[in-house]
Write a protein that binds this DNA or RNA. Structure first.
Ligand code: MN
Ligand code: MN
Ligand code: ZN
Ligand code: ZN
Lengths: 125, 125
DNA sequence: GCCTTTATGATAATTATTCTCATTATCATG
DNA sequence: CATGATAATGAGAATAATTATCATAAAGGC
């Protein structure tokens, strides 16, 4: 356990929502500008592996991270125009997914579901 | 309409399944080695925009493409060990997705659903 | 405190994709 | 068919995100 790890973990947990590696780096550098980019990447990987963080990819190729503890599993509903993202979960879908996997004799380990659309606000304009 | 476009489209349609930009470039270069990488990228983008091709991202950051015509919409069930990919579709899930979007006053434009698991074969070993 | 091990920071390397721009091909028109 | 305006191409540079390298520094058991 190093000073850097404590600081990066702490900062990650302090920030709610989805954030990129770069955004986390920026936040951490405000506290200690000597922390290196590579270290943030390294520790983000550790956080994902240990189940503290989760990767989120909402369309595009931008990788973001979000809390994976004290934060129930959920999927995302994304507005294609403004990028607004709503966290959703539907137990019936989760069940059907499990069933589909079983039909093919898979043991399910996870899933990603992004629903894309246009939000009401964006339609207004 | 250029020679390159014809050739790249033709080669893309000839190949079933998921393929990367690089794989398509390779296939096309076998026919005409003078075709440039950038042209393949450019034309792939056109194919996606025109609805002939569809981007597929199965976990990781590898972008693949598949046919989007004469090929019903589907989602993917992926083995995390061997990468085997099964195309799936469940009308009940599609309906529920639509409902979820409506609940949030979104007009749905599409979705991505990847289910991850371990296939029977991989479990055997 | 000392020593082995592991982590860190700076920077180079890598990879996929996009951009730039001089050259070339396309195609409507005379 | 020639012509010329317009758009597409190919080569390579540029970009951006992530990973690798490696000398130096910090951590933690003794
Ligand atoms: Mn989320
Ligand atoms: Mn497919
Ligand atoms: Zn919107
Ligand atoms: Zn498998």
């Amino acid at each position: 356990m190093t000073r850097q790890r404590e600081m990066i973990l702490d900062e990650f947990l302090r920030i709610e929502g989805h954030l990129t590696a770069e955004e986390l780096t920026l936040a951490v550098k405000k506290r200690d500008s000597t922390i290196g980019q590579a270290t943030v990447y390294r520790i983000l990987k550790i956080l994902v592996d240990s189940g503290i963080a989760r990767e989120v990819r909402l369309g595009s190729n931008v990788v973001k991270y979000e809390h994976n503890i004290d934060h129930e599993h959920h999927d995302h509903l994304i507005c294609e125009r403004c990028g607004k993202t709503i966290e959703i979960v539907d137990q019936r879908i989760e069940e059907l997914q499990k069933g589909l996997a079983e039909d093919h004799k898979f043991i399910i380990t996870g899933h990603i579901m992004n629903i894309f659309g246009i939000c009401e606000e964006c339609r207004g304009r």
